[in-house]
């Protein structure tokens, strides 16, 4: 039973990461700006993170989709989500108005357009998925299962 639920959770989280990653790769300049407006990283690191993060998300999506290294992929997903949540909270606390750029877009927005609550709650939901997979990494239809057999 847990293995079947696990499969659904794993595929679900894979879709989230794939969607997040794909939405950010078409316009590298916009992806860099989405990172820059958090005003956390120095300018020298803005582009590497803006360019690299979408591919980290895509790699996690791929691993989760095929079920290879489910536990490590889920653990890294959780770490990444915690970093995202902390970054959004930090921006919020500093009174900066941005779109989180979680699924493409990003950049500055009018103060009335911010959606920090929704963005953080959404990421917490994804964090639950990752947490489930860390606890129950054995899922049906996975490469992990196939390798262990």
């Amino acid at each position: 039973m847990a293995a079947s639920i696990g499969t659904a959770v794993r595929i679900g989280l894979a879709i989230v990461w794939a969607w997040a990653g794909l939405a950010k790769i078409s316009d590298p300049q916009a992806a860099a700006q989405a990172v820059r407006v958090y005003r956390i990283l120095p300018e020298a690191l803005v582009k590497p993170f803006g360019y690299g993060l979408p591919f980290l998300e895509l790699a996690l999506a791929l691993l989760l989709l095929v079920g290879l290294g489910t536990r490590i992929a889920a653990a890294l997903s959780a770490v990444l989500l915690l970093v995202y949540i902390a970054s959004i909270a930090s921006v919020w606390a500093r009174g900066i108005s941005i779109d989180c750029g979680c699924f493409g877009g990003g950049g500055s927005v009018a103060a009335s357009q911010t959606q920090y609550w929704q963005e953080i709650l959404r990421d917490c939901g994804f964090l639950l998925l990752a947490g489930w997979l860390i606890r129950h990494p054995r899922t049906r239809l996975s490469l992990d299962g196939w390798l262990a057999a």
Binding site: I25, Y51, G52, P54, F55, L56, L58, A59, L60, L62, L63, L68, G69, I72, A73, L76
Partner: peptide, 12 residues
């Protein structure tokens, strides 16, 4: 898994 991730990020 770690190699896949590192390769994806570097290539990206």
């Amino acid at each position: 898994a770690l190699v896949v991730i590192a390769a994806a990020v570097v290539i990206g």
